[in-house]
Amino acid sequence: MTTPDGPVADEHHEILDCLGQRCPLPVIALARRLPELPVGTVVRVLADDPAAAVDIPAWCRLRGQEFLGTSPGPAYDVRRLS
């Protein structure tokens, strides 16, 4: 599920640096921040806990937000839909 850096990188307005944090902290940070941002905003979560690769897309599915993809970093891009 890797998408090129380009188009997504241009859109994102917010970076959440969760490097060094153990799961579920990156997911919690995302859940706190995303509702504070306007609908349509793309957040890039930087997280090196391997569980983030599973849990961030799963959180998006459970919460009806859009998971855009993974970039090296590892970075996970999420768009607020609602």
């Binding site: 391997p50 897309p57 599915r61």
Partner: peptide, 24 residues
């Protein structure tokens, strides 16, 4: 099957393969 309960600190490969929440 959460990562913090495994010696490898990796989430369960089963939950990962299914694409379901791995923590808690």
């Amino acid at each position: 099957g959460s990562s913090c309960t495994s010696s490898t600190l990796r989430p369960s490969h089963v939950l990962e393969a299914m694409g379901v929440l791995s923590h808690g």
